[in-house]
Structure formats: structure tokens, C-alpha cells
Computed example of a mutant assay.
Amino acid sequence: MSEQTEQRKAAGRGGRKRDPSRDDAILEATTEVLGEVGYARLTMDMVAARARAGKATMYRRWASKQDLVLDAVERFRGAQVDLAALPDTGSVRGDLVALFRPDTPEQSARRMRDLVGLASVLWHEPTLAEAADAALVGPWAQAHRTVMLRGVERGEVPREADIDTICRVLPTMAAYRSLVERKPFDRDFLLASIDVVIMPALRAARDATAPTSHSGG
């Protein structure tokens, strides 16, 4: 959760004690409406109607649309991947493949809607752009970074590898494929990305530092 959100919540807004279950319902409704109409057209009234919440309740909890969307973005980010339960297959490639969970058609449509909503925040609200970008790429980049660092400890990945950059490549490619190309991030694309881009990039540091042999005449 961002420092901005922590400060805002610490300040409080009075009224009755917050109900986490209602907060979740309202933030889920925010994500849905955001994906359907975009940030510019989203209103607090739309979200209240979708969540079946009173407007007074909404404004006691979030003073503005910006505050509401920020919390919705951070909720989306937190739900992406459980860093405490990452697969451990014994290899970086195996772990990256194991992280993939194919969506049902309904899940795929919902994920696309949510991503489009987050992208609209990037385009229309510069003050929230960092949070939206972090939600799109951040959780998966962190998961990939953890997997790659385990590879370093096993000796599978050279310590010179630029993991901080490489860990963002696949999540960024996934976001581009979904948002720009409007194509599913399926297993075939995942495997091609891992085998053609990610694993060669991780090995490149070792190849660059390996001694070259010279034949004498």
C-alpha cells in the first residue's frame, strides 16, 4: 500500500467503523466500472450504484474519485500473485512456466476489462500513473525477480545478469500483448517468450564473461 494511501487512511474521515467486506465490494465495483467506461467517465455515483452502496457511505470512505481509484488499483495489484507461494520446480524456466495459470474464457474477458481500466488511469490521470503501472507489471516482475534470484543462488543464473531489468520483460510483454495487440497471453506465447527472450538474456552475462579460446599458429 502506498504512503499516500496510508496517510489518507490514517487521517480518517469520521463516521462508522469501516466494514472491510463492504470496502472490497465497492473496490471490486470500481474496477468493473473502470474497465467498462474508463477513468475519465467513471463517477462515484456509478460505483455506488454498481456496489449498491449509499453515496454518503462512499464519501465517508473516499473523499474523491482519485482516492477511490487509487485504492482499487492497489487492491488489484495485491491480488495478482502470492509471493509467499511461488512454485519451486528446481529451475528458472520451470518456475516461470509453473507461474502461468490459463484463464477460462470468462476469466480472460474479465482480465482484459480490468487491464483496459488500469490503462485508462495511465492515460487520463498522471498523478495515479505510477500506481497503475505498478499494478500492471509490478507484482509479476517481483515474482519473476524472486524466481531469477533463486536461480542465481543455485548457480543456474550468473550473478552478473541484469535481473532487475530482465524480470520486467515478460510482464511488460504480457501487458503489451493484451492491451495493444488485443491477443491472449497463452501458453504458446509464454513458452516462446521464455525460450527466445528470457533465458537467453539471463545466460548472456555468463556468455559475455566466458574466456575465449585462441588457436595459435
Rank of each mutant, 00 (worst) to 15 (best):
S2F: 10
R8W: 07
K9N: 03
A10H: 11
R16S: 08
R16C: 02
K17I: 14
R18W: 07
R18C: 07
P20H: 02
P20W: 01
R22K: 07
A29C: 07
T30P: 06
T31W: 04
E32S: 13
L34W: 06
L42Y: 02
T43M: 03
T43Q: 00
A56P: 04
R61Y: 06
A63E: 11
S64T: 14
D67W: 06
D67E: 15
D71T: 12
F76H: 03
G78Y: 02
G78P: 03
L83Y: 08
S91F: 14
S91P: 08
V92R: 05
G94Y: 09
L96Y: 02
V97N: 07
V97D: 15
R101M: 07
E106F: 02
Q107S: 00
S108K: 08
A109R: 14
M112V: 02
R113T: 06
L115P: 03
V116I: 14
G117S: 09
S120V: 10
L122H: 14
E130P: 00
A134T: 05
V137W: 09
W140T: 10
H144Q: 15
T146E: 13
M148Q: 09
L149A: 02
R154F: 15
V157E: 12
D164P: 01
L170T: 07
L170E: 14
A175E: 10
V180C: 06
E181H: 10
F185L: 05
F185K: 04
F185S: 13
L190S: 04
L190H: 00
A192C: 09
D195R: 06
V197W: 05
I198M: 04
I198G: 04
R206G: 14
D207K: 10
A208F: 00
A210M: 12
H214G: 05
S215A: 10
S215G: 10
